[in-house]
């Protein structure tokens, strides 16, 4: 059982506060992705869990055991690094077996585990090579095999796929997800790539400026972002926002349209809709098309509604010319509302 509990963890570097009071529980065998732009503190949090960085305050527990005062090797973790950190002076075999040798395991046990994990990662034929003779993708496989060979409770991954080219990344994404699910370890995976996060995670923790803004399943984060930041960060293109003024109770004026919205007496709200949740209709927002991008699967139209940037994902068979005025109507159950003061979602 390797349930991870992060309790009130904060980290300052001099005057800079990298992490503010982080609280997060990761269930046993869960695949948790820490997602955020660079500098949001996601790597710092991972390094605190790994023991490569010390938290200024707070506690980290793994499997009911407090580990933030232990050295990395006593935490039951292993790690995959962004630049792989495959030791250049050791063969692939010795790289994968490095941690096992440090534990002074008998030779045949080392061989058995190295060969098994190398098999999992399909690199059995590379065991005698040095890292200088491997491609980026092969080094990546060695780094993962080395982490798996430790049979850890928790595996930590710091942007492990970011140095691979796009095609290889997609292939490794699926493979990594399968291998990790099979190994039954708890995984924490740091990335700035939302596609990676969406496709691999059981749960995503969206981080921003040293805080966790939302921790939920990929579809929940996508459909019901808890804050404006998440709505604007997740999704490509991201959500559209329009200012809304209160009209009758439960009615809001959005770009000249009357919309059903939350009650309560807010002075103003933000209306939000995903670009793919817009349809061409007879009534709705008047949108002036500015840029039309045919992407094959669909048509991305960047337009202007009420002076605001507004994107719509439409059927690729439609013929839309720049300058044309479109009438777009939102799918009612996909409309979300945010409070401009708190930036939080309003039900």
């Amino acid at each position: 059982m390797a349930r991870i509990e992060i309790k009130n963890v904060a980290k300052t570097f001099g005057a800079y506060q990298a992490l503010h009071d982080i609280n997060l529980t990761i269930e046993d065998q869960e695949f948790m992705v820490l997602l955020g732009a660079s500098g949001c503190g996601k790597s710092t949090l991972l390094r605190i869990i790994a023991g490569l960085e010390t938290a200024t305050t707070g506690e980290v527990w793994i499997g009911g055991r407090r580990i933030d005062n232990l050295s990395p090797k006593d935490r039951g973790i292993s790690m995959v690094f962004q630049n792989y950190a495959v030791f250049p002076h050791l063969s692939v075999f010795e790289n994968i077996g490095f941690g096992l040798r440090m534990q002074k395991l008998p030779n045949d046990e080392v061989t058995r585990r190295v060969e098994r994990t190398a098999g999992l990662m399909h690199i059995e034929q590379l065991l005698k090579r040095y890292s200088g003779e491997l491609s980026g993708g092969q080094r990546q496989r060695v780094a993962v095999a080395r982490a798996l060979a430790m049979e850890p409770d928790v595996i930590l991954m710091d942007e492990p796929l970011s140095n691979l080219d796009a095609l290889l990344r997609m292939e490794m994404r699926a493979e990594l997800k399968g291998v990790l699910a099979e190994s039954k370890t708890t995984a924490i995976y740091v990335t700035h790539d939302q596609v990676e996060a969406m496709s691999m995670a059981d749960r995503i923790s969206v981080m921003h400026q040293g805080e966790i803004v939302q921790a939920a399943s990929p579809i929940e984060v996508y459909r019901n972002p808890s804050a404006e930041f998440v709505a604007g960060f997740i999704g490509n293109p991201p959500m559209n926002f329009l200012p809304a003024k209160p009209a009758d109770s439960g009615k809001w004026a959005v770009a000249g349209q009357m919309m059903d919205g939350p009650g309560g007496g807010s002075a103003s709200l933000k209306f939000a809709i995903r670009p793919e949740d817009l349809r061409l209709a007879d009534t709705g927002f008047k949108a002036v098309a500015k840029v039309v991008e045919p992407l094959g699967a669909h048509l991305l139209v960047t337009c202007e509604v009420d002076g605001q940037l507004f994107r719509a994902v439409l059927d690729s068979d439609l013929k839309v010319k720049p300058g044309e005025v479109l009438t777009l109507t939102p799918q009612p159950d996909r409309v979300r509302w945010f409070d401009p003061q708190t930036t939080l979602a309003v039900a």
Binding site: A50, G51, L52, S71, P72, K73, I77, S78, M79, F81, Q82, N83, A85, F87, H89, L90, F98, G99, M102, Q103, R146, M150
Partner: peptide
């Protein structure tokens, strides 16, 4: 590169082992 030392540390190498297994080679 520092990452090699961090990897060695995570995989259980003591400071002396890091010196003999990473620095020296």
């Amino acid at each position: 590169p520092k990452e090699y030392y961090e990897a060695a540390e995570v995989f259980g190498a003591s400071p002396w082992k890091r010196f003999t297994r990473i620095t020296l080679p």
